[in-house]
């Protein structure tokens, strides 16, 4: 456990004092810095908020944006919703897989990039849409343009 997590836990509890409402904000904050939520981290969070470990695990595993395994420095979510699919998102995903040498769901060997599918990201007017570390990149002109701007720069 890092000392500042105690501070963060207190801040989350001060902002959301009721029920277990501090849990999601605290998990977000720790994951943003750590990259993912390891078993140890989950134990620490449970201790910080005085919650049972299985409870915290069950919450973490429910939500798709919490990672329980290490991810790359850049997590690329490619939206595969219908409006994006009608505008070439499947091809975009294929091209990214080819350029990065990985399949959807995997991380490059150098630990730089994780490539994931996203369900509709609510930006269908900008299809095809991607997010890099939850920042919208849209519309994506090509796999090359996305990687040049977001990964190789």
């Amino acid at each position: 456990m890092k000392p500042k997590w105690q501070v963060w836990a207190n801040e989350a509890k001060a902002e959301f004092p009721k029920a277990n409402s501090a849990l999601l904000p605290l998990l977000h904050r720790i994951q943003t810095e750590e990259g993912y939520l390891s078993e140890n981290t989950i134990n620490d969070v449970a201790e910080l908020l005085q919650l049972p470990v299985p409870y915290v695990e069950s919450v973490v595993s429910f939500y798709s944006l919490y990672f329980q395994k290490p991810v790359g420095k850049r997590v690329i979510h490619v939206c595969v919703g219908l409006s994006c699919a009608l505008n070439g998102s499947d091809q975009l995903m294929h091209h990214l897989e080819g350029k990065l040498g990985i399949q959807e769901g995997q991380t490059t060997q150098d630990g730089e990039v994780t490539l994931l599918e996203a369900e509709c990201l609510a930006a269908c007017d900008l299809a095809p849409v991607a997010q890099v570390n939850l920042r919208f990149v849209a519309p994506v002109e090509s796999a090359d343009a996305l990687l040049a701007k977001e990964v190789n720069s």
Partner: peptide, 19 residues
């Protein structure tokens, strides 16, 4: 939230808001 379409359903949203 943290990624779950079902949380758009109002009672699931409240559950999520309660952590």
């Amino acid at each position: 939230g943290a990624g779950a379409y079902i949380c758009g359903e109002e009672s699931a949203l409240l559950e999520s808001l309660e952590g």
